[in-house]
Each structure stands twice: as structure tokens, then as C-alpha cells.
């Protein structure tokens, strides 16, 4: 290999390393409590974060004028369809200045999750929305797990969603022999509608 080629490879490797270490986009605030809000979505249905305890919640701020948001929308929609049954709930928050524009986009993109219109206090609860795209991942236990800013983070987001799905956490506890699992299993058995016992979550 020529000296020039070696330098090119070295520079490329350093660039990849730098990209891998860039954590600007995902600022993890593990101790932050879950923000809470109740709003009507674009269809008039009530959306309350408090009702989503036990679910993995991704609050995704978007706007129809935001090109990266428009590109991300199909991927987020696919996650909701694919992981919804395993405990993921996406809530869209549109930063559009009027509901009609937001509605038009939501219809076009066939978003399978509710979208509410942003307002000042709602944005402030999430530390302020000073640019898009922005998404906040909140765990089933009510803690903010990650804050994603900017584009090109979808693979990392999906990996963290998969890792934190309530079903995945339960399996992890199974593997560790966590006593909370026994409690969960007992609780599931006691709630069985037909009175029979079941093995509980797996």
C-alpha cells in the first residue's frame, strides 16, 4: 500500500471514530422526571402523558416545513406500527403555526400516532424547542432516557427504543432473575380474565 493510500485510510478511520464519539445529538438526562401534559390531538382526542405510564414514550417534535422531519416521518410511523404492541407509544408534537397545515401533513404521511400542536409551555417542559428535528425518549418508569437533536440519528434511536421496550426490559429481568418479575407474573396471573393462571410476560 502506498504512503498516500495509508494516510487516506488513516484519515477516514479517524473521521469514523470522531463520528462514533459525537454525542452532541443525544444528551442523556437520566435523572430528569417525565414532563407531563394533557392536550387534544389534531383529531380532538385527549392525549395525556400520565396515561402512558408503563409504556416507552417517544415525543417527536416536527413541522411540515422541516425537511429532515418530513424524511423521518415514515420511519417513525413504521416504528409505531412495528413496536406499538410491545409498548412503544410515539406522540407527535407539531411546531406548525396552524393546525390545518399540521393536519394536512399528518394525513399525507398517514401517521399512526397522535399529534398535538405545540405551544410555549409544552415546549418549555422539554427544555425548549430551539430547532428541529427534536425527539425525547422517556422510559416506562417515567424517566427521560435521551434527547435527540438534529438529523441522521434514526439508527441510534431505533437501537435505544428496542433496548428499552417494556417487553425487552422484562426479558432482561428474567435473565437476571429479578424478583420484580415474579411479582409481575403473579400480578398478571391474578388479573387473568378467565380466572386461569398464565405464565406471565416473557
Amino acid at each position: 500500500m502506498s504512503r498516500r493510500a495509508t494516510i487516506v485510510h488513516l484519515v477516514a478511520a479517524l473521521a469514523l471514530l470522531a463520528a462514533a464519539w459525537d454525542t452532541r445529538g443525544a444528551q442523556v438526562a437520566t435523572d430528569s422526571p417525565r414532563p407531563d401534559f394533557t392536550r387534544s390531538d389534531l383529531s380532538g382526542r385527549r392525549v395525556a402523558l400520565a396515561d402512558l405510564r408503563g409504556k416507552l414514550v417517544l415525543v417527536a417534535f416536527w413541522a411540515s416545513w422541516c425537511e429532515p422531519c418530513r424524511r423521518e416521518a415514515p420511519r417513525l410511523a413504521a416504528w409505531q406500527r412495528e413496536y406499538g404492541a410491545r409498548g412503544l407509544q410515539i406522540i407527535g408534537v407539531s411546531m406548525d403555526d396552524d393546525a390545518a397545515t399540521a393536519q394536512r401533513f399528518a394525513r399525507h404521511a398517514r401517521l399512526p400516532y397522535p399529534t398535538v400542536l405545540a405551544d410555549g409551555p409544552l415546549g418549555a417542559q422539554f427544555g425548549g424547542v430551539l430547532g428541529l428535528p427534536l425527539a425525547i425518549l422517556m422510559g416506562p418508569d417515567g424517566v427521560v432516557l435521551a434527547r435527540y437533536r438534529g438529523e441522521h440519528q434514526l439508527d441510534r434511536m431505533e437501537a435505544e427504543i428496542l433496548k428499552n421496550l417494556p417487553a425487552a426490559r422484562s426479558r432482561e429481568r428474567d435473565a437476571r432473575g429479578d424478583p420484580r418479575n415474579d411479582a409481575a407474573a403473579r400480578s398478571t396471573r391474578s388479573r387473568a380474565p378467565d380466572g386461569s393462571t398464565s405464565p406471565g410476560p416473557r
Partner: peptide
């Protein structure tokens, strides 16, 4: 820019 973002900051 957009008013909603102006309000945020």
C-alpha cells in the same frame, strides 16, 4: 423563521 420557534427562543 417560524413564530412557534421564535416564542421558544
Amino acid at each position: 423563521g417560524f413564530r412557534s420557534l421564535y416564542v421558544q427562543g
